[in-house]
Each structure stands twice: as C-alpha cells, then as structure tokens.
Amino acid sequence: MLTRQDTAKEIHFQQLAERHKRRVARERWLPVGLFLLTLLSVITTIGIVVVLFSETISFFQRVPIIEFFTGTVLKPLSQTPQFGVLPLLLGTVLSTAIAMVVAVPLGLMTAIYLSEYASARWRKFLKPALELLAGIPTIVYGFFAFTFVTPVLREWIPSLQATNLLSPGIVMGIMIIPMIASLSEDAMRSVPNALRDGAFGLGATKLEVTRKVVIPAALSGIIASVVLGISRAIGETMIVTIASGSSKNFTLNITESMQTMTAYIVEVTGGDASAGTTVYYSLYAVAMTLFVFTLAMNMLARYISNRFKEEY
C-alpha cells in the first residue's frame, strides 16, 4: 500500500529520471563535436599529402622524373638549370650516417648503463640530465656546431672547410643520443629479471648477461630506437642548414660543404622563390622525397617493435 510519502518519492524519482534523460539527449551532439576535432589530425595528413603530391606533379611536368632521381647535378638558379636530387640525397645520407656513428654506440652504451649498471639514485639524476640534452632546441645545436665544433675540429683536420658535413653530423648524433638511450633503455628494462637471474645463477658476469641475455631479448626495441633516430636525423633541418652551408656538391668528402634535402628547402624558401617557377616546385619534390623517407622509417620502426616484440 502506498503512503503519501512514497508517492512523493515516486514523483521525485520521476522528475530526476526525466532530467537525466534530458541531459543525455542534450549530450548526444557532444561526440559529434569531439569527432570533428579528432578529424583535424586526419585532415592535416591529407593536407600534407595533397599539397606535396599536387605540387610535385607540377614539378615533374617540367623536369622529367628520371632526371630528378638520377641527376647528379643540382643547379636550380643557373641559366640552364639542372635538377638532380642525388647531391641532396647523398648529403642527407652522409650526415645521417655520421650522426648514427656517434649516436648508436653512445646511445646504446648509455642505455645499458642506465638499465643494467646504474644505482637507482644515480639513475634518478642521470636520466633528467639527459632529458635536458633532448630538450635543447635544434637551433642551439646549430649554433654550437657552427661556432664551436667546427673550429675545434679544424685544429685537428686543417682541410676542414668553415661549413662542412662532418661537424653538423657529429652534433646531430649528440642530439639523438638521448632519444636512442631512452627508447632502448625502456626496451631493456622490460626484460624480466628472471631471465637475468637465470644467467647470473649459471655464473655469468654482468657484461655477459647484458650481451647474451638482455640485448637479444630487447633487440626489437633497440633496433626500433635506432630506426627512429635515423628518421629524426633525416628530417633534422637547422643544424645542417647553419653548419653545412649550401654547396650542392656530389662528393663523399665530408670535410666539404654539402647540402641536405632539408637545408635545400630552407635555402629555396628563404630566397623567396616566386610561386610558379621550377625552383619553387622543386621544393615540393624534395619535400615529398623527405616525407616518404621519414614516413617509411617511422612505419618500419613501428613494424619492428610490434612484429618482433617478445612477450613475457
């Protein structure tokens, strides 16, 4: 039997339920609005691809695609312009290679030290300090390469030009150390201790455990970190722009000035190439090449770390 109080409660609950329903109904548009915000990142990708692709096609209507990818001479501003991308590709590959020669051993050794050797306290100090190194803007590294590293290197290598590929390559490597170190360390630390203990129990030294247990177990993560480092070096702009100059040499001599793809883009845009000229379109062809390269590297890194991930 319902009392008067119960009826009042009933009515109150009904009101609340009504209000809740109204609120839910009003909220229905929310996911739609949020979805539109989410679409912005998809639109950005489409924007990049469309812009690069359409202008690159305009470029290839003026310069044959074969000439672009096989030409060893890049003279965009001469009377008889030539648009071979190989000097830029070589510059990018060489500077990336120098950076990796520096960053891979130092980054991996740092990762090993942090993950296997360092005490908790020491690690707590070292890691943020390395993050500081990673947080320094690339323009500052460019300044450092140009005004410090090059003059110092010239003491040892007198033939080194004022702008050269060696110095920015080394500085780029130093810039990438924290990235490789931190990603590899994550991979090594996720190797379970049981594996290490097993090897220690068999009488292995710490170095042997690191070399024969930890590194093989963390290999996919380590390789992925190196691939990401390569991608970062390929896309790095300011260091090479400042310290490597703008000579479009096609040479293996890293003591000379050479230009990378990124530095070429800076030079052409900074020179205010008027829209519609072949030089202007060449910008997009180079950027497209750069974009494809870095995208491929990033996807490769993700594939490696997903495909060969060891689950424990």
Partner: peptide, 14 residues
Amino acid sequence: ANLAGVPSIVYGIL
C-alpha cells in the same frame, strides 16, 4: 603517431 614523426620542415611547407 605518423604525424608525430613528420619532420617539422614539412609542416612549414604545409
């Protein structure tokens, strides 16, 4: 994730 890996100069061109 891919956008995070695009070199900054490409954003500049965009």
